[in-house]
């Protein structure tokens, strides 16, 4: 009996906080189907009929179709690149012995300590010389560099839980390294790989600074750039701005909703094991 009041107290506090936390999200999504005049109503107060037309108009006037295709392309390339590099790099790091491993780990961790913000000027200059301004593969390249560290570290944590005897036995039986990697290591580390893929996809989709500097031509705009253009071009039509926002935030949001468990597990496992 004495435990009851305490339980209610923390649930009540959590409810208030969660409502405050979810309010801006609910407000954004519901504003997407309101006319500009109704924007400042409460999130649950959606006028009838809802202004569904916003979505289609935002799509066409904001040229979101092109931007969504560009972002999907950059995200897919980044995820694929990071997975290939991080899976093979993590394999290497789990097989190596201490003096090598420490040295390599420091190199691999360098992007965490040297952020792209510090290198944005020389990178821009380099990309200009290489003709990679307005190039989507070029943008993917910077995203891969930005994500490779934590991806490798998270996967190394997962790979360490795989018994090395299993790998050695397969090697003695004549399996090549790549075969071992694809047949034993990757299947066993699937939750970690899935989590890394989702995390990298969300971060790449949401990246703003990279495209801001490297992409100038509207045909190569990612969704984030399309969205900033939105709020300057259609500042007066706020219903439209919110509709554009809803379209852009929905893909990572759905990805997170569907894979919530593995996403959070992968994230925390990688952070805690160090």
């Amino acid at each position: 009996m004495t435990r009851l009041p305490r339980l209610r107290w923390s649930t009540a506090l959590l409810s208030v906080l969660a409502a405050a936390w979810l309010y801006p999200v609910a407000w954004t999504l519901s504003n997407a189907i309101k006319s500009s005049a109704d924007i400042y109503r409460a999130p649950w107060d959606v006028p009838w009929p809802p202004a569904i037309g916003n979505i289609g108009e935002a799509w066409s006037r904001g040229q979101l179709g092109v931007a969504l295709a560009n972002s999907t392309f950059v995200t897919a390339m980044t995820v694929a690149g990071v997975l290939v590099l991080a899976v093979s790099g993590a394999y290497s790091l789990t097989r190596l012995r201490p003096p090598f491993r420490a040295a390599l780990l420091i190199l691999v961790l360098a992007p965490l300590i040297i952020p792209t913000e510090v290198l944005i000027v020389p990178l821009f200059s380099m990309f200009r010389a290489l003709g990679l301004i307005n190039s989507l593969p070029g943008l993917a390249l910077t995203n891969i560099v930005g994500s490779i560290s934590f991806a490798t570290v998270i996967l190394t944590g997962y790979f360490r839980t795989i018994p090395q005897d299993l790998i050695d036995a397969a090697r003695v039986d004549g399996a090549g390294r790549i075969e071992v990697l694809l047949r034993i290591v990757v299947p066993l580390a699937r939750p970690g790989i899935l989590a890394v893929a989702i995390l990298v996809a969300v971060l790449t989709w949401n990246d703003f600074a990279g495209p801001l500097v490297l992409i100038q031509k509207p045909d190569a705009f990612t969704v984030q750039l399309a969205l900033t253009r939105f709020s300057t071009l259609y500042a007066t039509d706020q219903g439209l701005t919110f509709a554009g926002m809803a379209i852009v935030i929905l893909p990572p949001f759905l990805l997170f909703l569907v894979f919530q468990r593995s996403f959070i597990q992968g994230l925390t496992a990688g952070v805690v094991r160090h």
């Binding site: 969660a18 949401n206 984030q224 935030i249 990572p252 997170f256």
Partner: peptide
């Protein structure tokens, strides 16, 4: 609860 507090993490900074 975890969803409620973690959800903003997946939203883009532009939004």
């Amino acid at each position: 609860w975890r969803f409620a507090f973690f959800a903003p993490f997946v939203l883009a900074s532009v939004a």
